[in-house]
Each structure stands twice: as structure tokens, then as C-alpha cells.
């Protein structure tokens, strides 16, 4: 092989490698690759996935941030492509771990997983990193997809940067989406006790928390206290005679209450409200009769 032939082969190989492009891989990244922020400023960082023509239905991983430079304030998942969190994104020292599923799969170039509101603490530079990412294909086998990551390089300075990122403040007046909690039981969990499953979304600010109240007395439920709860929730009334109220509260404080009717409602004579009415009626009758008797005397 002559020298010219060798050069030709190398040139063709180089051209082919340019044309071939990268192999299929889902990429998990942030909004941008670099970010300049002023010290003591709040800003939002979105975590996205580009599935690269593959349908992904399960995701897990963690975000690691420099605690000396950043303080995480809030996690927003209202518009997430993840429908059900196995482990909801949670701030733990310098990490935010997450795992969840998208039934039916997600295929797209910019699917929001969640976003984090950070506050810069002091000047310096560092990076917010994506670690231990696992994305599984929607193929019924849980095949691991090839993944790549792209971290965020961060510079925090005293000077106001030319393009200043900020927290997107959107006034959320919408209440969370409608939802239908389900009461069920299964011998394999909670010792076969009845439990409640529920989930809803809030596209504005995201769900903040849920509260539950169980009451056999429909009209006297105001005397029962709401308790913070998560799905699945083991019902206290194992006889299923209570109305169960589930309140979904979003991060803007908007509420939606769903009600599960009792499977075995109480009898009429067990309803305190009816007895209150009867007693009041008797007292009223007593007053009327007594008044009439005195008048006659």
C-alpha cells in the first residue's frame, strides 16, 4: 500500500466518523451548561432528559451540588414527565436523589424531570453534577438505555452577570387536578389492613403535601383534625365506616379535597347529628309546653 493510499484511507475513515454521528443515548442535562450567578441570588435549575428516539419509562439518579456555594430552597415537579415517584426528589445534605416512572414511556427531546430553586451563598465556582443515572427502555424487560450526562458549570460573582438567571415566578391560582383515591387491601402488605392510594398533579407550582381526615360523622367532621399523609395510607377505621377526606395542597396553598364514601355507612341512629336534632326538638317542645302550662296557671 502506497503512502497516498494510506492517506486516502485515513481521510475516508475520518469523513465516515464525522458522518456517522454519535450512538443512540439518552442525555440527562440541565437547562444550560454554564451559568453565571450573582451572590445571594435565587435561581432555578431544570433537570431534563432527551430520550434520543427511544421510549424511556423509568429513571433514577441523583444531583450533587456544592453546599459551600449553594443552598437548595425548593424542588418543583409540577410539570414533570415522571408520573409516579418511587423516591420523590428530596434534598439530603449535598444530594437530591430521585427515581420514578412514566407509564407508557416518554419519547422527546426536552422532558422536564424536575427543577430546583437554589440560592447562591458566596462567590466561587463549582459544578452541579448528575450522578448514577439509570434510564430504562419502555420494552417490557427494563432494558437499560445508554445514557450520557451534561453537568452545569457555575460561577458565582459579586458582579451582576450580563444574563441574569432568575426564578420563574408564576402566579398559581389553579387548584390541583381532580383525583380519585382508591381504598384497597392486599394480604402482602400492611398485614392485610385496608389502605388508601392516591395521586394527583398540580401543573402550576406542584403538589406540596397531602392531608387526610377520617370521620364516621359526615356533618361533624369539622371536629376531626387533618393529618399529613402520603400514599399509600393505612386507614385507621378498619371497618370502613368512615368518610375519608383527602386534601391535596399545592405549593401556592391551593387545595382540592377528594372524598371517599364509607363502604359500610353508619346507621341513622349512630349519627350524632340526628340525635342533636332530636334533643333540640325535645328541648324546644319542652319550652313551648312549659310556657303554655305557666300561661294556664
Amino acid at each position: 500500500m502506497t503512502k497516498i493510499q494510506k492517506i486516502k484511507i485515513i481521510l475516508v475513515a475520518c469523513l465516515l466518523s464525522l458522518v456517522a454521528g454519535p450512538a443512540l443515548a439518552a442525555e440527562v442535562s440541565f437547562d444550560t451548561k454554564t451559568q453565571e450567578v450573582k451572590a445571594n441570588q435565587s435561581f432555578e435549575v431544570g433537570v431534563f432528559i432527551n430520550t434520543d428516539n427511544e421510549s424511556i419509562n423509568a429513571l433514577e439518579g441523583q444531583i450533587v451540588f456544592p453546599v459551600d456555594l449553594l443552598e437548595p430552597k425548593e424542588i418543583r415537579d409540577g410539570n414533570s414527565i415522571v408520573n409516579f415517584w418511587i423516591e420523590r426528589p428530596k434534598i439530603e445534605s449535598d444530594k437530591i436523589h430521585f427515581s420514578g416512572i412514566t407509564p407508557g414511556g416518554y419519547l422527546g427531546k426536552k422532558g422536564l424531570i424536575f427543577s430546583v430553586i437554589f440560592q447562591s451563598i458566596q462567590e466561587g465556582s463549582g459544578s452541579i453534577e448528575i450522578q448514577d443515572i439509570k434510564a430504562l427502555l419502555n420494552d417490557g424487560k427494563g432494558t437499560k438505555a445508554n445514557t450520557t450526562i451534561s453537568n452545569l458549570q457555575l460561577v458565582i460573582s459579586k458582579q451582576v452577570p450580563a444574563s441574569q438567571p432568575a426564578v420563574v415566578e408564576k402566579k398559581d391560582t389553579d387548584i390541583p387536578e381532580t383525583f380519585e383515591p382508591i381504598v384497597t387491601s392486599d394480604p402482602s402488605i400492611f398485614d392485610g389492613k385496608y389502605f388508601l392510594v392516591f395521586a394527583t398533579q398540580d401543573k402550576g407550582s406542584g403538589i406540596d403535601y397531602y392531608e387526610i381526615k377520617e370521620s364516621r360523622q359526615k356533618f361533624l367532621k369539622i371536629f376531626k383534625k387533618w393529618v399529613i399523609a402520603e400514599s399509600p395510607y393505612v386507614l385507621k377505621d378498619r371497618k370502613l365506616r368512615s368518610y375519608v377526606y383527602i386534601k391535596a395542597v399545592d405549593k401556592a396553598g391551593n387545595e382540592r379535597i377528594a372524598v371517599v364514601e364509607p363502604r359500610y355507612p353508619i346507621k341513622w341512629y349512630e349519627n350524632y347529628w340526628i340525635w342533636i336534632i332530636i334533643i333540640l326538638a325535645i328541648i324546644f317542645s319542652f319550652i313551648v309546653i312549659k310556657g303554655n302550662l305557666w300561661k294556664k296557671q
Binding site: N57, S99, L136, G142
Partner: peptide, 12 residues
């Protein structure tokens, strides 16, 4: 683990 949830998500 996550694989079981992925299989479940496929048959949802």
C-alpha cells in the same frame, strides 16, 4: 428495583 417498575410501566 427500578427494572420491576419499568416492566410494570410497560404493562400499565
Amino acid at each position: 428495583d427500578l427494572i420491576d417498575f419499568s416492566i410494570m410501566a410497560f404493562y400499565w
